[in-house]
């Protein structure tokens, strides 16, 4: 087990490098100049030159690449162009908000999505299944930021139940500010997760050992939780990685809807404010997130599927 995890960690090194290279290259090699993209194509040439010099875009590409990797390795991303704040500070301030939003959203989606998926599979073809499938379809079709805006209109402005803006100060207030944003992302994710759980359960419920377990006289509940769910968990856990990442990317728009601080807000604000170093640092953070989540999925996969850790698969 430990060996498998170590192996995955070593495998992750080139993936991290590739992802960092992708971010680096996309910002520089794609047609279009980040300086022009940031300042607009009518900016005077001197202004563009000054900008390039200030953020180091006038150095040779290999030199920029080495500097970029050094920044990532040391966690020192330089300073914001707009107000000279150290970017590391900005990241540290905003990261907790994004983490708590993504974390709670994932928790909500697990608590709602998996049970709905199970009920849907067990009641296959009957009314609860139809309702659950409708829920799954709705979650795919309603954009998360629209759902967030609807929640805000109804629960925030119409009923005046929940705070509509900001991240809150102090623990109780902060949790209160988390309810609507986390519920928005959580519900959309729960819809996806219910679809996934349903199909994974239907797949498993077909097998002979389920019939055997039932024939032994085990209760339906026990058959579902002990026999079916455990085996259905493998595709679900693999899928959860994708959903955590979609919650993370969903947090970008949701932070904007609810004017919450966070990495997404920081990133979009920086694109608008033409703050190139922050843009690069935040996108890098998101890219590293992607790698870490994928790595966690690999490890979780090994924990629930013994064949992977003993190397049979």
């Amino acid at each position: 087990m430990g060996r498998y995890i170590l192996q995955r960690l070593i495998d992750a090194v080139p993936t991290v490098l590739l992802s960092l290279t992708l971010v680096f290259a996309a910002l520089r090699i794609l047609p279009g100049d980040p300086a022009v993209a940031m300042l607009g194509d009518r900016a005077p040439i001197e202004q563009i030159e000054a900008f390039r010099h200030k953020v180091g875009l006038d150095q040779s590409l290999p030199m920029q690449y080495v500097n970029f990797l050094a920044e990532v390795a040391t966690g020192n991303f330089g300073r914001s162009l707009a107000n000279d704040t150290p970017i590391t500070q900005l990241l540290a301030d905003n990261l907790p908000y994004t983490l708590e939003l993504t974390g709670f959203a994932t928790l909500i989606s697990l608590l709602i999505g998996i049970p709905i998926g199970i009920i849907s599979a067990v009641a296959h073809g009957r009314l609860p299944d139809h309702v659950a499938r409708l829920f799954g379809l709705a979650g795919y079709c309603i954009p998360d930021f629209f759902l967030g805006a609807l929640f805000m209109l109804y629960f925030g402005l119409h009923l005046d139940l929940l705070p509509v803006m900001g991240g809150g100060t102090g623990f109780p207030d902060r949790m209160l500010h988390l309810v609507m944003p986390a519920a928005t992302i959580g519900l959309v994710m729960a819809a996806f997760l219910s679809r996934l759980t349903r199909s994974a359960m239907l797949e498993v419920l077909r097998f002979d050992y389920i019939r055997t377990a039932r024939a032994k006289g085990l209760s339906t509940w026990l058959v579902i939780t002990k026999h079916a769910l455990r085996n259905a968990m493998i595709p679900i856990v693999t899928g959860i990685g994708i959903y955590i990442l979609s919650a993370l990317s969903g947090s970008i728009a949701i932070e904007l809807v609810f004017s919450r601080p966070g990495l997404g807000q920081l990133m979009i604000g920086a694109v608008e404010a033409r703050d190139f170093p922050i843009v690069q640092a935040t996108i890098t953070m998101f890219a590293l997130f992607v790698v870490v989540v994928n790595l966690m999925v690999d490890v979780a996969y090994a924990v629930i599927n013994p064949r992977v850790r003993t190397g049979e698969a």
Binding site: T15, R28, G32, P34, A37, S246, M267, I283
Partner: peptide
């Protein structure tokens, strides 16, 4: 595999940042 690992929205932001909106 590398591109698939990235959420599409993030790629969108990356391209918009590099090439302009």
């Amino acid at each position: 595999d590398l591109l698939m690992a990235f959420p599409s929205l993030l790629l969108g932001v990356l391209v918009a940042a590099a090439m302009g909106p």
